[in-house]
Design a protein around this nucleic acid. Structure first.
Lengths: 252, 252
DNA sequence: GGTAGAGGTTGACGCAGCGTCAATGTCAAG
DNA sequence: CTTGACATTGACGCTGCGTCAACCTCTACC
């Protein structure tokens, strides 16, 4: 019942580095240290190590494990507290997943919004292939998880609002109006409402996107050249950006 | 359009420390540095900062954000990859939550198992209050989330197996049999099966608890004095531990 | 011109839990 | 005596800054 550091590591299914770490932080000291400095462990140490590894596998921090094993806290009690923050973490992750899905939708929706309407006033058949190639079969497949999680009605409503908003943005841009003027600001308001329509907006909850998020998104439209590609020189995207920025500064 | 570090930090909703960090790692350099060393930022920098903060809020790492902004990667593409590992993390968390719930059940179930049966052969009314005080009303409420998530039948089955197993453990212990002998090993097998009955066992999945987990749990029974408290000197808990350990060494 | 106070600078530690060298000592076997 | 295998003690790296610390700089007021 006297093992070297490697032996006990293999017995418990961990590494010698971990054992030296546990020694360093005072979580598990070797039973005996030889005159040559070698660490030696007996079965009592193995027992303690196994308890440590069990609790660690459940996600407890090493200091907390120390308290539990040294009886300043009971295992079930510690685990229950731990459970609470695990649940909190999972919730946080769920919100973040919703945010990311939302943002992908907002970015690609914005792209498609601009693109699909761009060709509305022109020869639709002439550009059909190009549009399909860029945003067609593939794009629908790509928006997979988020998009598929919506019902048919939700999808229809989303696309409906998106298309109409896109047509109006393009019309406004082509008429060369002031992005800070009333009409463009009304469009920005609709853009805001469109975004608010999806749960999980960062920083805003049910109230809608936060100012920072809204501003960041506006800039992303300009940054992603695919968004404004069909306008030549990004001018369309920049118009949208300017209107959104002015809106954010005024309203958010 | 020329802001100090504090000003732009407030504008974007972050701190000056963060900005100096972004400068250090080359993510966002100040537009101009005065002869006194002071950092100055213009609106282009503000724009970039806003994009950074948006992506960071979604959980992307700073190096990845740099790639996205410097156009080596598109934002939707990066976000989709990110989404995948977010989902992976959430799954991992879900498994860990199941494990923790399971372990709480295994520990408290073990406690109750020993306690409730301990008094079975004695004057039940005499110790009733003590039992209730220790494991009664409170314990049931404490096992909240995990316990409540089970159906009535599952609960009944769980308690049924638990009680019977407990009675048999106690009987075996009182008869002073060998913990490594056939009868005790059959009990350990049942203990193993009982544990396997709950999904989310660490390291084992549907196959049952891993050797490490099983060993660790056995040790936790001894470590938590409440488990064996009613046996005087922990002898009962140690008997269970020894049988489980022998079983694990032999079968796992 | 002196001084206070607000704001700027560059280090450097801290956090969680080890993985991963690096430089070097020790022990058993051939 | 040499060769491995295994041991030791540092110390950096990773993530994203928060938080001192020690030390300039600029503005305002007396």
């Amino acid at each position: 019942m006297d093992w070297s550091i490697q032996e006990i590591a293999k017995l418990a299914g961990t590494t010698s580095r971990t054992l030296r770490h546990y020694d360093d932080i005072g979580l598990l000291a070797p039973t005996r240290i030889g005159s040559n400095g070698y660490r030696h462990y007996d079965d009592a140490a193995l027992v303690r190590l196994q308890r440590i590894l069990l609790l660690r596998e459940l996600g407890l921090g090493l200091p907390l494990i120390g308290e539990v094993l040294d009886r300043e806290a009971s295992a079930p009690h510690a685990l229950r507290s731990h459970l609470e923050w695990l649940r909190g973490e999972q919730e946080r992750l769920a919100r973040q997943i919703a945010s990311v899905e939302h943002t992908i939708g907002a970015l690609e929706g914005g792209e498609r919004l601009m693109a699909e309407n761009m060709f509305d006033g022109f020869d639709h058949t002439r550009y059909k292939e190009e549009v399909e190639e860029r945003w067609g079969k593939d794009a629908y497949a790509k928006s997979d998880a988020w998009w598929r999680s919506m019902s048919a009605e939700e999808k229809a409503a989303w696309q409906q609002r998106m298309s109409q908003l896109g047509r109006d943005w393009i019309s406004a841009f082509e008429r060369g109006i002031d992005p800070a003027g009333d009409e463009a600001q009304a469009l920005a308001q609709r853009q805001f409402d469109w975004l608010r329509g999806i749960p999980g907006t960062p920083g805003g909850g049910g109230a809608g996107p936060s100012k920072e998020y809204f501003l960041g998104l506006a800039e992303m439209y300009v940054a992603d050249e695919r968004f404004g590609a069909n306008y030549g020189g990004q001018a369309g995207a920049e118009f949208v950006r300017d209107a959104m920025t002015a809106y954010a500064e005024r309203e958010l």
